[in-house]
Design a protein around this nucleic acid. Structure first.
Lengths: 186, 186
DNA sequence: AGTAACGTATTGAATGTTCATTCGGTATGC
DNA sequence: GCATACCGAATGAACATTCAATACGTTACT
């Protein structure tokens, strides 16, 4: 793995464990087996590393979310996307914790958040379609997206904090609850 | 207002705006019209102030949540609690932002979180009752509590970030979605 | 009432540490 | 020989916390 990559990964690990401001560059350098100066060869400053990590993770979203999306049945599509995100977070606890605990203002600027929007616009379109075709209830997309994302995060939280084992049947319950909150009431 | 109170409020305001580590004690002292030394007369250290703020807000929960709880109809009870929390957060954006952005590990230790549990145990009991009496579906309470809390936070987020006006009808939509996700399927 | 003694409240300059960032230099490959 | 990668000691700023000194208020004794 090249040094730039090592610096990013090390920073991610440390920052998730200790918090941004409790993670000195010297420590990052040491644990990445790199000199402090080398870090500044690849990055402008500390915050730029954080921002690069943020963009890296958000870019994953757009790809992960719509992976293996089945044709036809909207409920199945929803379940797939939901589980895609759930599994992504559970399988990448560093990414999850970074998004939950590190990527908050004022560490991540509104500017960077704005730049990340295009990467997840495909999901928006899928939901808009679902609403138009009466698979989903008629509420503002933003509301629906936020609540769905919130549901996944709630499930992930329980799993990661080990407050609930989250065996398969628990996941199914959470998923069913989430679906019932957005499905069209016919 | 006495100095201790002034220090707490000032710290809350600054910490929500700038983040814990970007808020020097010297600034808190200045904006609270107090000498730095005075802060250390009332508090052990910086982190203790943060913890005191955290406990202050969590204690509010227990009180706010069950205010004006109607008798009988469980759905009405749920709506009341949901709106109680929603309105509390919207009316106290500092409290909301503190809980969302500041009160995260490792700033807030697991120890402090544990200490705060008793203050919100009454809600747990209400939900357990709802499950027993088939008003709510039969899922682990922790899951239900987490998802409900998540739903409120999702709504608050949209409002506070001004991504959605969240007029009354929007709030009703969110509330209805939340209720549909937990209500017993008869 | 006068005052001495004592604890609590308050002050802010001084201390010592920690850290992000710089920079002059060396190695490596082209 | 030029450019890019890499190094880490040195710099200087920022900060949490300490502490010696001062003010204030209250009790307690004459």
């Amino acid at each position: 793995m090249d040094k730039k990559q090592r610096i990013i990964i090390t920073m991610l690990e440390l920052v998730v464990k200790q918090g941004v401001h409790a993670t000195p560059m010297s420590q990052v350098a040491k644990e990445a087996n790199v000199a402090v100066g080398t870090i500044y060869h690849y990055f402008e400053n500390k915050n730029q590393i954080i921002e690069e990590i943020y963009m890296m993770i958000v870019k994953d979203y757009g790809v992960v979310l719509i992976a293996n999306l089945p044709e036809g049945d909207f409920k199945k599509q929803y379940k797939t996307m939901w589980l895609n995100l759930y599994n992504y977070f559970v399988g990448n606890p560093l990414a999850y914790k970074f998004i939950e605990y590190v990527a908050v203002p004022p560490i991540i600027s509104k500017e960077i958040v704005k730049q990340s929007i295009p990467y997840i616009s495909n999901i928006r379109d899928i939901f808009l379609d679902g609403i138009k075709n009466k698979h989903l209830r008629d509420v503002p997309v933003k509301l629906m997206l936020q609540m769905t994302f919130g549901d996944v995060v709630s499930a992930v939280r329980l799993k990661i904090k080990e407050e609930l084992e989250m065996a398969n049947d628990h996941i199914d319950l959470a998923l069913e609850m989430s679906w019932d909150s957005i499905k069209h009431k016919g």
